[in-house]
């Protein structure tokens, strides 16, 4: 009887990955480098880098993503620190409350945000967009930072105090450097999706503000598969570069980091 190798178990996953991860990526790449008739061309790239409107959208998307990430970090770090501090927070329920919005679909949450802005008679637009982005992605910043802070050995803090560090110095010299992996994970988890989002910007700005995700969606909706794919590929490269960057930072000790 032939033995059933354990690696055979991976076959279904392999097929799944091929169909839903590798194939689409290959398709995007093929579409990017071809024109509507299917012949090889670099015209799509040329078009992107020579269309001021699209370049502007591209720069603007990165700007929005950066602003969102910075705001999430500024709001998320103190929140994570308070949540992980046993003296300030004694229950896991508060942690739950921060994570709870993630249980609800992002579109529903955003529609609710629109309704809330309506109710408060606040104008939709750029401000609403940033609010919606931060609101949606804040948990993705808090959670990895909370995780690293929570797992951090408290004896480091005691050792720093023992060596003469005031609470402020303990924070800047020990807590922050030791939680840097969580911060990097958080930045990645916020920056990656915000750069490509389009539903939030559509709903919260009444389609007035265009982000890169919107441009891709419009092109594909209008049958411009090749150009849409090109922008998607460029975006993927940008995200890929940020991932590589934080990966190399993460190598020193990867057991203490942790994406969710």
């Amino acid at each position: 009887m032939r033995t059933f190798k354990r690696s055979y178990w991976s076959v279904p996953y392999l097929i799944f990955m091929l169909m839903f991860v590798v194939m689409p990526l290959v398709m995007i790449a093929i579409y990017s480098f071809t024109d509507a008739s299917g012949s090889f061309t670099l015209a799509n790239f040329k078009r992107f880098f020579t269309t001021p409107e699209d370049l502007h959208t591209f720069a603007y998307s990165i700007e929005v993503a950066l602003i969102t990430t910075v705001l999430c970090l500024l709001l998320g770090y103190p929140a994570a620190w308070i949540l992980s501090n046993a003296k300030l927070n004694r229950s896991k329920v508060t942690v739950m409350l921060f994570i709870l919005p993630m249980w609800i679909n992002m579109l529903i949450r955003t529609l609710a945000t629109v309704a809330l802005f309506d109710f408060l008679r606040l104008p939709l637009g750029e401000g609403a967009l940033i609010f919606g982005m931060v609101y949606n992605f804040l948990p993705f910043m808090i959670y990895p930072i909370y995780n690293t802070l929570e797992k951090m050995d408290k004896s480091y803090i005691e050792a720093a105090q023992d060596l003469g560090a005031s609470p402020a110095k303990v924070f800047t010299k020990v807590t922050v450097p030791l939680s840097i992996h969580g911060v990097l994970s958080g930045i990645l988890m916020v920056f990656m999706p915000t750069i490509s989002t389009f539903a939030i910007s559509e709903l919260l700005t009444l389609n007035k503000v265009k982000l890169l995700g919107t441009t891709i969606q419009e092109n594909i909706n209008n049958g411009m598969w090749n150009y849409g794919s090109t922008i998607a590929l460029i975006m993927l490269l940008i995200i890929g570069v940020t991932t590589l960057f934080s990966d190399s930072e993460d190598k020193r000790d990867n057991e203490s980091g942790g994406l969710i």
């Binding site: 004896s155 480091y156 005691e158 023992d162 020990v174």
Partner: peptide, 15 residues
């Protein structure tokens, strides 16, 4: 942090 004594911790707690 204001006490003039220092501790050697059981698990060292080196940063």
């Amino acid at each position: 942090y204001r006490r003039p004594l220092n501790t050697v911790f059981q698990k060292y707690a080196l940063f």
